[in-house]
Design a protein around this nucleic acid. Sequence first.
DNA 1: CGGTCAGTTTCCGTATTATGGATATTATTA
DNA 2: TAATAATATCCATAATACGGAAACTGACCG
Lengths: 254, 254
Amino acid sequence: MAEKASGGVQSVERAFELLELITNAGGEVTLSELSSFTSLPLPTIHRLLRTLVSLGYVRQLANRRYSLGPRLIRLGEVANKQLGSLARPHLKNLVETLGESANMAVLDSEMVVYIAQVPSPHSMRMFTEVGRRAHTHDTGVGKAILAQLEDDTVRDIVTRAGMPTPTEMSIGNISDLMLELKRIRERGYSIDEQEQEIGVRCFAMAVPDAPTPMAISVSGPVSRVDEAFAERAVPLLQSAAEQISAQLNAAAAS
Amino acid sequence: MAEKASGGVQSVERAFELLELITNAGGEVTLSELSSFTSLPLPTIHRLLRTLVSLGYVRQLANRRYSLGPRLIRLGEVANKQLGSLARPHLKNLVETLGESANMAVLDSEMVVYIAQVPSPHSMRMFTEVGRRAHTHDTGVGKAILAQLEDDTVRDIVTRAGMPTPTEMSIGNISDLMLELKRIRERGYSIDEQEQEIGVRCFAMAVPDAPTPMAISVSGPVSRVDEAFAERAVPLLQSAAEQISAQLNAAAAS
DNA sequence: CGGTCAGTTTCCGTATTATGGATATTATTA
DNA sequence: TAATAATATCCATAATACGGAAACTGACCG
């Protein structure tokens, strides 16, 4: 009937769609807001929510609004650990060799989420926190991920997320971004040249063949993270990305 | 046909059951393991998993095992923040005044989950991590929550979760627990008297009228957390619990 | 190196299950 | 208190998910 015969179980797809909508709406929604976002009929939404509430994945507030339930916390924690613990040794290795903070992030619909971070030993360092969401067009990891996607997908992502320009170095329109992605594809890695914060430079590389688009990066103050740093960092980034990729696609121990 | 006409959408319930099973199995399972846990037929499990994989909530490893997908991370983070960010200022306040670690936990079916934690400034302190699950009968927050529930519900919860006794102070049977809950109801707060770990005492109080049963606590070594401490702590706990309750039940801003 | 087997995936007819229009109920506003 | 808008429930319908059976894949062993 619809436009997509994906073969998936529709009620499950719809239930998760609702969860995502609640999340995107800032974690708290009314039933009718949901109905205006989805084009699903109200009774259907209500029934799915009822199910989710009874399971504890959604909770209903006193004002009858719906928000995410506590049961999701654990799923998220475990999922996080799952990927993060796999990546952390590699990031740690980068930090030990290069002396700057290393991060890993995944694409989550139209934003990137940091899922692992190893801080640099320097006192002056980045304060990237695990779980934080960031735009794709103004971060090293974001651009590295975008460079792996189809142009149409990229356009869709930045259109949905918007293109704020936190600094005067940030890329503010799609055509500039496309040019930049072209350079990244040729070069094999991305540079965040003070695009998110003045004084901070970052080198990032996508993890190839990942089940979800993801990238790793090293970042620090421009004074330390310069051309010479890049020469040391890029091969290490590449090797780490490849190792993570291999582990992701490899058989795991029993 | 089955035993439960819960009125919920079955495929959704089953999908989440699978997610929980993967989580409980440590985050990585084979299809047939799942089938042995659930009594669902293999094709059904497979179809649900396929749906979850295509949505990004489950990922399939190269060894054909299934594990939790990155998309869950964000849902968990937001759900966490939802409750935690509301509570954190109050916990921080407790820590500043009392000098001991403060926690908040919610009931999640038959266990409690810690959703916010502010560590004490002391070097010797608890290592309660956000997202951790614990039993109800041997923790301060757990007992505070149980004391708010019907006796039948309590019985059901501890039956499902079991009653392990991590220390010789732990409560090991239901009748003792019921007596303890009676004392807690009269007193208005619960005490974890080295029931989870020798040397650790904890005072906890339920958050009244919460949409989900929840409680806050302060905990520390018995040497510091004594009778005199309790006299200072209890009124503060009460006030914090009431403030959190008020916020939970207030209408949210547009 | 070929054969066997357990585990995984796909197929497809069936009927159980989710669906959503219509309606009742409950909050909210005037 | 009445009117209005939101939320929740009912129930006949058929579309949807279901699961038995069969095909496929990779692993292990002879």
